[in-house]
Every structure is written in structure tokens, then in C-alpha cells.
Nucleic acid binder design. Structure first.
Length: 952
RNA sequence: GGGCGGAUGGCGGAAUUGGCAUACGCGAUAGCCUUAGGAGCUAUUGGGGUAACCCUUGGAGGUUCAAAUCCUCUUCCGCCCACCA
């Protein structure tokens, strides 16, 4: 039986070593690093023996022991105290609390094991006795525990001091100040964070990747712009305001401060002088400026649309705030409410947004595919159906005009404007109205998520199919959306799965109009699902026999001629709703006047500032609407009493142009200085999560094109290269609070230093793929740094030529890998070089070259060693090592000899030995001959300096 | 349902794009060393077999002198979008 041990100590390294050693001895080991955790673990893991340290923060060992003795009395649980306390009073007190054994730190592992063995041997003798349930006898007051001298510095390099030292150095020397110069520029940008106050592993990964690349560019001699800022508007600040009675601005700035500190502890090479926060009036002023420019050009406009509305909170809800059809805060059922809202006419740029994707050769294909789908250009035909009774037009959009002869009914969305007149006075009116009301009540999310079941009602009206003049019924169904196409479809149940299901459900007729080739013929009676593939036209009048792909065009053409339809391009992209009925965002700079209507705030009055004293109750609509001084204004045109817009902008607006603001963050005349932008833009490398593949990137592209149209920019696309980094997982799952599997970056920095953390993040996986968090892996990175650290103690004057060759091979590989973001293999290359150095030694130039290549990844560490080696300037002023191809050439190579594709032998030959010579050598090679056995060679294939394959 | 991407040792991942599968790291095993312990150093580590040798990149087939890589079929997984007409 494996005994279960619980080891409790606040010193992580002791706990860890005990765990590994005791596990090796065959025990099941649970660990805890503080008293509270220990008690929880006693309950969960039910340990047989407990090893307990006395001095721990918050709850000391005495208290833990007391708790264990009073709460866990079901059986005897030996407790071994392992403590550095040598005071007799402490010793006595521990025993008075029924400790079973006391070991003084530092102690030998053998003593620990012996102690455990003794406890095990005693176990059968010590059953729970009656008096163990009795309350503990009163004991003398616990003696004070002496604070322990901190454990000896076990780290071989003092990362803490080193990291602080160099962070200070970079700050004081403005080491990463971006400046316009004659040098080639490089703009490296990572998506700026929402200032939640704490960084998470995703940030660490994102920013480390960007940091390595920009530091690499620094060393390469580029003029680098590497800025950081905060996407600081948004709901969490408002929620915090309601909950904690704070103000959104002070809460946000506090979070920014905390986040900044954490980012700085990562040692990131930002030009902090260019920091931007979108909630600064100096920033959002330009949001308003841009909005007005768009308004002038008719790109910002107002239109009614339905929103999720909570009647009890009197507020709008984002889709994410609708939980099970109810308000996330008060669970009141969510309704759809029509509100006048501001939109941006992004659809005006749809063609350019689609076409210019071709320019983006360095973007991941999948991001481009996602954008293409989002814009959703599709070619089709708008077919004109008419009602039978009063000849009213019902246009219907389809991408499958080839199936028109199979249309056996048409379906309107419940919101379709013609529904009312169609049902009026018909027998089905009652049922139809009930159905429409039911659908209207459902929020969009509910309606979209309702799977499979397709509900609908017959209007009682008929329509005429324009190609064959057939009379077909008009239905209303929830599976047709008003937002897409014309809000009406022709239904072809045989060739569209949704129509098929609906027709079967409601007993509507089916007709096959496309027969697949080389497959059994379809018939409506036997079909179990729609056939959506290609085939030959049947039941299609004079189009019979055509392939449906040809018929598509012929039928469209025919309808155009007979004016029964028109060829139409349809786009999925909608205009962008930017109104938010919230406080913590950019106020939309608009004034409503009874006489003059919608009046823009004059430019010279910008910014329209957020009032700082808005009330936060979470109820009764936007807090802005309750601030009289804000709402009540004079009309800029006629000076009459007027009302200010209380909606604010969606935060996506803020982030659609921040990369331009970084070029001249202080500029008071314009959103960005054209001279600076001309030098720095476009962004050479953009790095961020895939979750922004659609909206943020699309909006940024839209803004860029808009600025180009204002002649403020000369380029079409803002981001030349895009890298979408993968997520950080723990145990195969995304790290999240709800899963409780968060690993806090800051605590890892405490333990191993920022450099080790950075190194691990880069080494564990390529940037694009998911990264599985692994404590052990981080330790491995830390170990590697220590290995490199120790080389300094043993630098040779001369080394074997093999080491120099290894260096140059490494330079070639690492340079190529870093350039292409293959950091994991770049680090593997460095590890190989270090292994070589451990075998054969290194001289100073080799060590220095290694440090320079390592510097972008572990900057503090390399700066420190660089200084130790006697350099006065930062390592980032050094030259990136260059590979000398002449040194790569080896005099001899080992070649693999294959016989019939299987490795049978190897020979060492001079480099570039010709094939003829190789043949001779093989005839002389005994091992090869064994396999050839005098059989004639049919083929003799040579891959130079690598491999020979002989076919017999 | 549509689109994109995956599947390689006990684990994270390599493989110059068709040329020695498993680099590098983690974990594991043994030894050395010294320390209370950790750390460090050295060696071994895909599976089977005493060995020669055989097998192995989710599965089945194919192309090729040669396949993780190309082709066909198939299974499973992940992400994004989606009653999109």
C-alpha cells in the first residue's frame, strides 16, 4: 500500500525536493505551501502522515496542528514537525499539541525517511482512542517563533537584482526611444491590452514575442518603434463603479498603473514616452474629430435598429450580457427594442476591403479567409415573384437560380413588411399573428440557437413562379432572416436542406430539378435529405439536360431578358453599429436642436469631455443622460436650447487607429503628424490573438482607407505582416478564472525571474500554436540560463575548430529562425551550442556571440554578462554575429548507404566526393557488400554529401 | 452546415519541404559528487528481440529508388463563422 504524505512548507524548493524524493520512495505525496491550503489538503487527500513546517505566513504550524487535532479525529494521523526552530519551548509546545516527531532543519533525507518509517510501524498500535475526541487540554501560551534567517541564496544568478538593475538602466538611458533617422525603420506592434490591472499568460506570450522581434531589429541596426498603450474604455470600469462605488476613471487609471508595473517587470523594450490611453481626453478628442469627418462625408449616420433591452434596468445589453434570454444582472427577460443608433458606413468600403486582401501576402491565410467570409460577397439573382391576388412584387434573392423550377413555396421572414397585408382578412390571420408575436419576443441569440426545429405558418396567400407561372403558397417562418437578402426566399426542398426539413414538417410538395450524374436517380418519395450537389437539369422547361452550373448562368440571363429578375451581387457585411448607451466611452460629438436637427459639435469645441460626476446605479439608462450640465446645451447654429447626444462610441472605434497615434502621441493639432506617419507607417509587424482576426483588423483597415481618402495617408493597408499567436493552455484548457486554472505570471517572475519565464514561453511551442503551460518546463529554462551563466567562469584562450564551426552553424540557424519567428528551434540551436561548449570549451568571442543571439530573448541576463565581460555599452548596441560560410565546410562527411531504401551502412568520405568514386568505395565496403551479395546494381542514386541508395 | 487547421515517444515539440524519423527540452533510470535537501556533472532513454534484425509519424491504400512530407479514401480532435437563401 502506498502511504499518503502531506508536505507543508512555505519554501517552494524544499517542498519540491521533498516531493520528488518521497515520490521516488513510493509514497503518494501531496503538498501545501501555507496553513489554509494544508487544512484543505488534509480534508481532500486524507493523508496518512503529515510533514509540517512551523513558520509560515498568516497561519503558523501550531495553529495548523491544533486544527488538525481538533477536526480530524477519525484516525491517528502522525504529524512530523520539520522546523529550524531549536528553542526548547517551541519543542515542548509542539509535543503538547500532540506532534508525534520533531526534526530540526536542516535535516538529512535519511532522517526524514526514518521518521516516516517509525510512524508507519507505530500505526497499527495507535488506533483512535476515546480521549483523542476529547477537547485538547489547555496548553501554555505558544512560544514566539523566531523569524528564520532567509534560506541561503540557492539561485546561481541573482535574477531579481539583475532584472531590476537593467530595467532601471533602460528606463534611465531611454534605451528604446524611437527616433526618425536615416536608418531603415521597423514598426513592431502588439495589440494593446484592456487594463484589467493584472497581466495574464496570454499577455506575457504576446508581448514577449513582440519584444524579442523588436530587440532583434534593434541589434540588427534598425530604427525601431515599439510602443505600448491601453485600450482603456469599456464596460468593466462601469461595472466596477456600480459594485465598488468608485469612479470609472480613477479605477481605470489605478489599473493602468498596476498593469504598467507588471509589464515593466517583464523587461519589455517599449518606448514608454509614447504610451497612449484611449480614455485620455487627449486621445478621445481625436475619436470625436474622426467621427465628425465621417459625419461630414455621410459615413456616420443614424438609423433605427433593435437592441437587447432590459426593462427593469432600463438599459441596453450586449449579446454577451444576455444569459438564457434574460438580463445577466437581474434575470428579467430581455426584449427587443427599437432605438435610433449611430452607424458607420463600412459597407461603402466593402469592395476595397475585399480586393486589398490580395495585397496582404504576409497575412495568415486563415485570417484572410475569415475576413473574406465576413465580407461575404456572393453572386446570385434577385427573382421577382408576384402575389396571385393583387400582383404585389416579392423580390427573392438566391445563389441557386438553377433550382427555380423546383421552388414549391416561398417563405417570408416574420418581420417582412409585406406580411401584414398578406395575412389581413385571411382565415389564417389569427394563427399568423400569434406566431409572429412569439418570434418577436425571442431575442436574436435564442432564435439563432434554436436548432433544427423550423417553425412557420401559411399566410393563405399564393405567389406566381415567374418561370413556369405555377401558383405556390407563401409561408412565414423563423428560419428566414430579415437581415439577409430581401428577407424572403424561394424554397426548393429537394435541393436545400433547411427547406427540405421545413417541407417535410409541414407537408409541402417536393420536385426534383437536378439529377446527379452517375448516381441513382432522385425521387421526392425516397429522398431523406436534400441533394445540394451538381447534376443535370430536369423538370426545368427548355433548360432540361443542361448541367446545372451552365443552367445557373443561362437561367439568370433568361430572367434578365424577360425582366423577371436581375443579376445581383450580395454582400454579407453590414454597417457598423457604434452607439453604446453607456458612460465609459467617447461621447459622440452631436447636438440635437428642435429647429436645426442633428448638429455636429464644432471642431474647436472638441473634446466633448465626459462629466466626472455621473451617477452609477446600474439602473435607469445611461448615467450620462442624468447629468444636466452635460445634456443641456445651446445649439451651435441657432443658439436655442438643445440636447446633447448621450450615446458613447463602441471601444472598437478607439482601437481602429491607435497605431497611428503612437507615431505622434502628443500632437495637439491632428490625430497624427503626417511626417511621422510617413516615416513609421505602415506597421511592419503586428502581433496579437486570433480572436481579433475579424472585427478589429477589419475596422483598422477601414479607418486606414478612410484616412487615405482624406489624403492624410498614402497607403491602403495598415499592417504589412501579421502574426496571430496561439493561446496559453493549462491541462489542455484555456486558462480562466471560472476554471480556476490560472497561473499568475507575477508569481512566476518572483520564483524564476522574467528572463526564465520569457525563455520558456518562447521555447515551449512555436508562436502560432497553442502553448501548454508546464511548471517543469519553466524550471528547465531556468536551468539552461544557469548553464550559460556558469560558462563565464571557464573561458578559454583557444578552442578546437569544431566549436567555432558549431558556432557558425548556430549563427546561421538561429538568425534564420528568429527572422521567421521560429523561436523554439532557435533556442534549441542555442542549447546545442551550449552543450558543445560544455564538451569542448568556449573562448570569449564565441561566448559573446552566444550572448548577443540570446539577448533579445533574455535581455537582463545577457546585459549583465555582457557587462561582466568588460563592455561599457548595452549589448543592444553590439553587432549581430555573422555566419562565415567558409567555416561551415567540413573536410569529410558521413554518408548513409541504403540498399533498396533501407539504411545498411555508413561511410566517411571527403566532402563532395563524386558519384563514381563513391561507387568504388562501396565495392570496397564489406558491410555494403554483405547486402549486395554480388547482385547487379540496377540503380545508383546519390544525394550529395548525404546519402547513397543502391537498388538491386 | 460552411471555412481553416491539426494528429509524430510517457509529455511539449524537431525534421533544411521527398533523402538517416524522434533535434532541443521535460519526465524517467543508473552512477559520480557534495550538500540537510535541492542543485550540479556523466551515461542511458520510441517499441519488440539474447542477438542478427524487425516494427514505428491516427487508420487503409497508392505514387516513388526513397513518404511524417505528395495523391485517394477514412477516423478522431481543435478553432472560427453560421437557420447566409
Amino acid at each position: 500500500m502506498a502511504y499518503k504524505l502531506l508536505v507543508v512548507d512555505d519554501e517552494w524548493d524544499i517542498v519540491d525536493s521533498m516531493r520528488s524524493r518521497l515520490t521516488r520512495e513510493g509514497f503518494t505525496v501531496t503538498v501545501a505551501s501555507n496553513g489554509e491550503e494544508a487544512l484543505r489538503k488534509v480534508k481532500e487527500a486524507d493523508p496518512d502522515i503529515i510533514l509540517l513546517d512551523l513558520t509560515m505566513p498568516r497561519m503558523n504550524g501550531f495553529e495548523v496542528l491544533r486544527e488538525i487535532r481538533s477536526k480530524f479525529t477519525d484516525r491517528w494521523r502522525p504529524v512530523i514537525i520539520i522546523s529550524a526552530q531549536t528553542d526548547l519551548a517551541v519543542f515542548k509546545h509542539a509535543y503538547s499539541l500532540e506532534a508525534d516527531h520533531y526534526l530540526t532543519k536542516p535535516c538529512k533525507m535519511e532522517d526524514v525517511l526514518r521518521g516516516i518509517q517509525t510512524m508507519i510501524s507505530l500505526m497499527p498500535l495507535r488506533m483512535p482512542s476515546a480521549d483523542s475526541h476529547a477537547p485538547l487540554p489547555p496548553v501554555a501560551e505558544a512560544p514566539a517563533l523566531k523569524p528564520l534567517t532567509p534560506p541561503v541564496q540557492i539561485k546561481e544568478y541573482a535574477f531579481k537584482e539583475i532584472e531590476e538593475k537593467w530595467q532601471r538602466y533602460w528606463q534611465e538611458h531611454r534605451a528604446f526611444k524611437a527616433e526618425i533617422s536615416a536608418k531603415k525603420k521597423f514598426y513592431c506592434l502588439e495589440m494593446f491590452p484592456y487594463p484589467s490591472g493584472k497581466i495574464h499568460m496570454g499577455h506575457v506570450r504576446n508581448y514577449t514575442i513582440g519584444d524579442v522581434y523588436s530587440r532583434y531589429k534593434w541589434i540588427q541596426g534598425f530604427s525601431v518603434l515599439h510602443p505600448m498603450g491601453f485600450d482603456a474604455f469599456g464596460q468593466p470600469a462601469e461595472n466596477a463603479a456600480i459594485k465598488n462605488k468608485t469612479k470609472p476613471d480613477s479605477w481605470t487609471y489605478k489599473c493602468i498603473g498596476e498593469m504598467e508595473r507588471e509589464l515593466k517587470r517583464m523587461g519589455l523594450s517599449y518606448d514608454w514616452d509614447r504610451e497612449v490611453s484611449t480614455c485620455d481626453a487627449g486621445y478621445y478628442k481625436w475619436n470625436q474629430w474622426i467621427f465628425l469627418k465621417m459625419f461630414e462625408r455621410g459615413l456616420a449616420y443614424k438609423k433605427a435598429s433593435s437592441v437587447n433591452w432590459c426593462a427593469s434596468c432600463a438599459t441596453t445589453l450586449a449579446n454577451e450580457e444576455v444569459v438564457d434570454g434574460g438580463c445577466w444582472r437581474c434575470h428579467t427577460p430581455v426584449e427587443q427594442k427599437e432605438l435610433e443608433q449611430w452607424y458607420l458606413k463600412i459597407t461603402e468600403y466593402k469592395g476595397r476591403l475585399l480586393e486589398d486582401l490580395d495585397e496582404l501576402s504576409e497575412w495568415p491565410e486563415r485570417v484572410k479567409a475569415m475576413q473574406t467570409n465576413w465580407i461575404g460577397k456572393s453572386q446570385g439573382v434577385e427573382i421577382y415573384f408576384h402575389t396571385k391576388d393583387d400582383n404585389q412584387l416579392i423580390p427573392v434573392f438566391t445563389t441557386r437560380p438553377d433550382t427555380i423550377f423546383g421552388a414549391t413555396y416561398i417563405v417570408l421572414a416574420p418581420e417582412h413588411p409585406m406580411v401584414e397585408q398578406l395575412i389581413k382578412g385571411r382565415p389564417a390571420e389569427q394563427a399568423a399573428r400569434a406566431f409572429i408575436d412569439k418570434v418577436k419576443k425571442e431575442s436574436k441569440t435564442v432564435r439563432a440557437s434554436a436548432e433544427v426545429k423550423k417553425e412557420g405558418v401559411f399566410t393563405g396567400a399564393l405567389a406566381i413562379n415567374p418561370v413556369n407561372h405555377e401558383e405556390i403558397p407563401i409561408w412565414i417562418a423563423d428560419y428566414v432572416l430579415m437581415e439577409y437578402g430581401s428577407g424572403a426566399i424561394m424554397a426548393v426542398p429537394t435541393h436545400d436542406q433547411r427547406d427540405f426539413l421545413f417541407a417535410k414538417e409541414h407537408g409541402l410538395s417536393l420536385r426534383v430539378v437536378i439529377q446527379p450524374e452517375n448516381k441513382p436517380a432522385l425521387s421526392p418519395e425516397t429522398m431523406t435529405e436534400a441533394y445540394e450537389g451538381d447534376g443535370l437539369q430536369v423538370n426545368s422547361g427548355h433548360f432540361n439536360g443542361l448541367h446545372n452550373q451552365d443552367a445557373k448562368h443561362k437561367i439568370a440571363e433568361w430572367m434578365k431578358q424577360h425582366k423577371t429578375g436581375k443579376i445581383q451581387t450580395h454582400w454579407r457585411l453590414r454597417d457598423w453599429l457604434i452607439s453604446r448607451q453607456r458612460y465609459w466611452g467617447t461621447p459622440i460629438p452631436i447636438i440635437y436642436c428642435e429647429k436645426c436637427g442633428i448638429v455636429p459639435v464644432p471642431y474647436e469645441e472638441l473634446p466633448v469631455k465626459l462629466p466626472s460626476d455621473a451617477p452609477f446605479t446600474g439602473e435607469g439608462g445611461s448615467p450620462l443622460g442624468k447629468v444636466r450640465e452635460f445634456v443641456e446645451v445651446k445649439c451651435p447654429k441657432c443658439k436655442a436650447d438643445a440636447r446633447r447626444e448621450t450615446d458613447t462610441m463602441a471601444t472598437f472605434f478607439d482601437s481602429s487607429w491607435y497605431f497611428l497615434r503612437y507615431c505622434s502621441p502628443q500632437n495637439a493639432q491632428l490625430p497624427f503628424d503626417p511626417r511621422e506617419v510617413k516615416y513609421w507607417m505602415p506597421v511592419d509587424q503586428y502581433i496579437g490573438g486570433i480572436e481579433h482576426a475579424i472585427l478589429h483588423l477589419l475596422y483598422s483597415r477601414f479607418f486606414t482607407k478612410f484616412f487615405k481618402d482624406l489624403v492624410m495617408l498614402e497607403f491602403d493597408e495598415p499592417f504589412t505582416n501579421l502574426l496571430t499567436q496561439g493561446m496559453v493552455l493549462k491541462d489542455g484548457e484555456v486558462m480562466s478564472k471560472s476554471r480556476g486554472n490560472i497561473v499568475d505570471p507575477d508569481s512566476m517572475i518572483q520564483k524564476y525571474g522574467a528572463d526564465a519565464l520569457r525563455l520558456f514561453m518562447l521555447f515551449a511551442a512555436p508562436p502560432e500554436t497553442e502553448l501548454e503551460w508546464d511548471d517543469r518546463g519553466l524550471e528547465g529554462s531556468f536551468r539552461f540560463l544557469n548553464r550559460v551563466w556558469r560558462i563565464q567562469a571557464d573561458i578559454k584562450d583557444q578552442v578546437a575548430p569544431g566549436v567555432t564551426r558549431a558556432l557558425h552553424k548556430a549563427i546561421q540557424k538561429i538568425t534564420d529562425d528568429v527572422e521567421n519567428f521560429k523561436f523554439n528551434t532557435a533556442i534549441a540551436g542555442m542549447m546545442e551550442l551550449v552543450n558543445e561548449i560544455y564538451k569542448n570549451g568556449a573562448d570569449k568571442p564565441i561566448y559573446e556571440a552566444l550572448l548577443i543571439m540570446l539577448a533579445p530573448m533574455v535581455p537582463h541576463f545577457c546585459e549583465e554578462l555582457w557587462e561582466t565581460l568588460g563592455h561599457k555599452e548595452s549589448i543592444f548596441k553590439a553587432q549581430w554575429p555573422v555566419c562565415d560560410p567558409a567555416l561551415l565546410v567540413e573536410e569529410s562527411v558521413e554518408m548513409v548507404i541504403q540498399v533498396n531504401g533501407k539504411v545498411r551502412s555508413r561511410i566517411v568520405v571527403p566532402t563532395d566526393t563524386p558519384a563514381e568514386k563513391l561507387k568504388e568505395l562501396i565495392i570496397a565496403d564489406a558491410r555494403s557488400q554483405e547486402y549486395l551479395q554480388g547482385k547487379p546494381m540496377r540503380k545508383f542514386i546519390v544525394v550529395p554529401n548525404k546519402l547513397i541508395n543502391i537498388v538491386v
